[in-house]
Amino acid sequence: MSVIQQLNGGGIYLICGLIVAFIAAVCIVFLVRAWRIGKALGMDTVKMKRAVTSSATFSVLPSVGILLGVLALSGSLGVPWPWLRLSVIGALHYETQVADAAAEQLGISLSAGEMTTQAFPTIALLMSVCIIWGMVLSALFNRKYTDRLRSDGPARGEKAGKQGGFGDQAMSAMFIGMVSAYLGSYLGGLISGNGLFTFTGSWTPLAVALAAALAMAVFTWLSERKGMAWLESFSIAGSMLIGMLAAVLIGH
């Protein structure tokens, strides 16, 4: 039996499947609790439904992209381990980099031909250990941190309203910063990707981002000006789909 066949064995599927099932159950518990307290607090159920449907539609396309990540890693790590990692805690760029670093420490490369049953548990452990810190910090400090940030807490008084106001602006600004870093990397890649100021780098990511932004503009116009508010829940996923379609057209 080849190494990959062993890594795709029933026992490993069972271990990974049980952990994925546990996390799915945790998500359901949190979802139900949030829904119930929302109702108890008198929140509009239409708003809550909107949050659920928009999040579901938003997540479908990126999830298909993540599934491709499972496919990409399954060649060297088998199917069940990448399935667990990308269903639960990981992100493709992280998993690939750390698995490669672990393989390097063992003197092999991350490929089906060089993978061994001895190397696999080491690679899997490093992938687990490197990315647990967000969860550890959350377990240790989430309560103290979120209590300090609450704008409706009893300890905060009138000043809290003002600070909460900037809190919202800061979050939008953080998002602007995040988007700018990525768009800046696409622009920089086009200008200097193949040598400083040669303007011969890949323009595909930029064109895809532009197509998605234009689609988003149309969705926004339809939902805000044409009374099609229901479109809002699908605007991000729809814009992404149009952006990805542009990538296919450019690819041909």
Binding site: L61, P62, V64, G65, L68, S172, F175, I176, M178, V179, Y182, L183, Y186, T204, P205, L206, V208, A209, L210, A211, A212, A213, L214, A215, M216, A217, T220, S235, I236, S239, M240, L241, I242, G243, M244, L245, A247, V248, I250, G251, H252
Partner: peptide
């Protein structure tokens, strides 16, 4: 045929988000 689409999920996401936040 579909490979370029899935290679560009992140630019598609940030393009859509750019319109939403930049405006």
């Amino acid at each position: 045929v579909l490979a370029p689409a899935f290679d560009n999920v992140v630019p598609a996401l940030f393009g859509a988000m750019a319109w939403k936040y930049y405006r």
